[in-house]
Design a protein around this nucleic acid. Structure first.
Lengths: 186, 186
DNA sequence: CAGTTTATGGTACGACTGTTTCACTAACCG
DNA sequence: CGGTTAGTGAAACAGTCGTACCATAAACTG
């Protein structure tokens, strides 16, 4: 034996690569500029990740991991009613700090819709928000196996997020949340 | 003077190019394969459109033109209530024939969110559905200047479209429309 | 016919892509 | 020390990209 491997180095590079993708998007990603921005070389990226495709996968997993880590802790005080929880969800997901994640979310999903063969397990990625959201909106729900309520809420939130991301009209978006919250209460 | 120009040829190529993009997406588009699929040459594509960027713009305009031409005629029988019109809107936009347009819509918007500088007038593209939809949902509206109602409806529809496109779960999507229609009525 | 303009083919340029190969250094074990 | 393995730099490979240049054919006017 000799010179033990250093797995932490790969993780450091991965973290900075995820930062870069969250800041600049996935579309134009290529190894040489990415390596330059990360103070490394395309040689090392392939040494650590095998191929560009595997690097991208690792970046997406990392981005998803970061998002999931936060949604668990910061969301859903169980006490309030569904209307307040919708507002909390919207406030959290539409906050400026979340913009990079939202951008990446839409980028990946748009690409997945166009080329599903590259994303074998993406359908589950959409539906597994329902685990947390089904719990969050349990009392508006009709039975424990109800997937329709989270579907409705998430469809509205995602659609409104896209609207906000494109138009930047936060005022109109916030008022739309008010209106939708009113519909939920009635 | 000599040999008069033939503007119809450019339109023929554009129509077939739009077909190709609607079928295969914008992401991996490049001139040589596109030209091959269209029985022409990259040389001629640039001769007709000036640059790839201008070609893409023309294709997007053409795709949008086709979609707008249909939505005017096929939608919104003014007689029915808002619930029926929502169902009609959903049935129309989620029909299998619309899948290519929906795919392209999400692809363009995702790219626009990541790189807004390339789409100077995209915000209007999102909001001008409100002209037609504001008319469609006029009676659920609070006054003629109300943009919130169409925002809510379109957010729900777009988000649910993305869900359907990714998961393919039409059953759950249709039931979500039922639920949302119930909320609108109440 | 000559003259003029549109349309087209072929080709090459420079830049960029992901990946591979070769060489080399750095760090560890016995 | 020698031996072994991890890490790394530089360069090259084979390919694609958008585009520009040069020639030439095709269709028209006078």
């Amino acid at each position: 034996m000799a010179r033990p491997t250093d797995p932490a180095r790969r993780e450091r590079v991965l973290a900075r690569a995820a930062d870069h993708v969250l800041a600049h998007g996935l579309a134009g990603l290529s190894l040489r500029p990415l390596a330059a921005a990360l103070d490394t070389s395309p040689r090392m990226l392939l040494y650590d990740f095998g191929s560009k495709q595997e690097l991208v996968s690792a970046i997406l997993v990392e981005a998803r991991r970061r998002g999931a880590a936060r949604v668990a802790g910061e969301l859903a005080p169980e006490t309030a009613g569904p209307e307040e929880r919708l507002r909390a969800l919207w406030a959290w997901i539409s906050a400026p700090e979340r913009v990079p994640y939202v951008r990446l979310f839409f980028e990946v999903h748009a690409d997945a819709v166009a080329h599903p063969e590259n994303y074998p397990d993406l359908a589950t990625l959409v539906t597994d928000w329902f685990g947390t959201l089904g719990a969050t909106f349990r009392d508006v729900t009709e039975g424990p196996g109800d997937t329709v309520t989270p579907t409705v809420v998430m469809a509205f939130v995602r659609g409104l997020l896209l609207d906000l991301a494109v138009t930047g009209d936060r005022d109109r978006a916030d008022r739309a949340v008010d209106r939708f919250a009113g519909l939920l209460r009635a």
